[in-house]
Design a protein around this nucleic acid. Structure first.
Lengths: 144, 144
DNA sequence: GCAAATCTTGACTGACTCACTCGGAATTAT
DNA sequence: ATAATTCCGAGTGAGTCAGTCAAGATTTGC
């Protein structure tokens, strides 16, 4: 039930991109100083987001990163799945990364009580995070 | 965003107590074999639940553990907080174990976007888990 | 009283994850 | 060429997870 620093930093970094969207690129150190994130750790995160198709980048002088999609198309759920893995509290209720639960005395899919309640927890979490875009995120910021 | 084995085993153990509620006590090895839980690990869990006031115990032959409260009074939220700590995905939105977030560039309580969205995630999780009792848990089991 | 069964306590462990950190290679602008 | 940047892989120290183990305390049955 915990958000890693990696995801938290990733979200805060993407917030910076949202705030400057349309106005060019950002470099690691800019994001790092604005958001107080260790720069080498931030790097890993930006790279992961790039590999996942959310960011583009250019090397060398005047290089940097930029958002590929518009902030309204990117949800926090996507970002957290990229950086932290599945949202579900337990593998056997994940929709994006289902895993059969081993050593559970209950049948495959049927009537496991843990599975039942954790399924609704997963749906509640995903219901929020998969409908919350970076735009919402940034305006939650501005409005407070 | 993950439920530990400790909590999962704890919930499955309490399910056994719920099923036999009113009919005496259960011993470690009974629960362990019925729920496929390593017995020494289960022991730690039962002890923690005892210290937290959910179970009573008696030593020696014919000993065992028993529920103190009725299953309708115990919520999954309580149990998971005992075994896994706070439900909130991040310390600064926990209601039972608030912790000021360090190195966050946003002011103490105000307009941090991460805090904002994670606050609603916390409320969604707690909204389910703090209203789901062991009775609900067991009937989810019976009904499927 | 003695042995057996049970809970109780505390320490220990191996594997793994988290949050970084570092070194160096590749690319681009001046 | 040089400086600035991204890219990539590996390393690391602290901590957590999921158990395991050994020894002690308490109760029951004989």
């Amino acid at each position: 039930m915990k958000l890693s620093k990696k995801s938290e930093y990733g979200l805060r970094a993407l917030l910076e991109f949202t705030l400057v969207h349309g106005k060019g690129t950002l470099q690691r150190h800019q994001i790092a100083t604005r958001q107080h994130i260790p720069v080498e750790f931030l790097e890993q995160i930006l790279l992961a987001l790039k590999r996942a198709g959310l960011l583009s980048s250019r090397r060398g002088m005047k290089g940097g990163y930029a958002l590929i999609k518009s902030p309204g198309e990117i949800t926090l759920g996507q970002v957290i799945r990229i950086l932290d893995g599945p949202l579900a509290p337990i593998g056997c209720v994940s929709k994006t990364a289902y895993q059969k639960c081993r050593d559970c005395p209950y049948a495959e899919h049927a009537q496991c009580p843990v599975q039942h309640v954790m399924g609704s927890v997963r749906d509640a979490i995903a219901g929020i995070l998969d409908h919350y875009t970076l735009d919402d995120f940034a305006s939650g910021h501005r409005k407070g």
